[in-house]
Amino acid sequence: MRDLPVDGDVSGNAAGPRRRDGETLPVVLDQVGYAARDAALIGDLSLTLEGADVTVLMGPNGAGKSLTLRLIAGLLKPTSGTIRWAGRETPLRHSVGLVFQRPVMLRRTVRANLDHALAAYGVPRGARAERIAHLLSLAQLEDRGERPARVLSAGEQQRLSMVRALAADPDLLLLDEPTASLDPQSTAIIEGLVHRAADAGVKTVLVTHQRGQARRMAGEVAFIHRGRLTEVTPARRFFDRPQSDAARAYMAGELLV
């Protein structure tokens, strides 16, 4: 898929490509709606994800950012409208990497968490140890391998969850506030991994409330308010002046209701 030296390969997968370009991207959301118990949580959301830059998804708490990521990951089915992954009705297996807002850590060691994921991705047993070592070093968790994952600090858990998602060698990476509550160093590690992924051709959707991070990372900004996209704007223009009232108010630090 992506012809890179092992060093630049974020997945640590030296064995080579499993998918070809264009099998997952573009992801096209067409008038997507999601309702639960009669409450319309997402409405009329149209968005195309392609290329290898970062789409930053911003919006106030409860706007529907996490729900949107779940829809894009194929974990939730829209109740109206359609989503297509390179024209398909479901994403290819393991083509979408997801880092949850609250990281899900199996009740096992850090190493066993990675091993479990690699097994699910179909990496043969004999090849896993080397991959795990590579992933641990990407996350800078080399000395944490034998600890129970659930005793890691929040930042360490997010780093683990990040490389665990990258280990699938995804085409699309969905990151739900991966650096909320992280210190500058952990944040830098995660941002570095996102840049590396982008260099390797991975498309990323990043949810963040950190404006500095949005500026550093964004190729384009999608702003969501009350379940609706108010704009999708190239980053430079967005940070110059958001196009929608909701985004302008949010960026100015005003309370949005």
Binding site: L75, R93, H94, F100, V104, A117, A120
Partner: peptide, 11 residues
């Protein structure tokens, strides 16, 4: 707690 993660692994 695990459901979405395990589903995302296609186990």
């Amino acid at each position: 707690e695990y459901d979405e993660y395990l589903r995302s692994l296609y186990l």
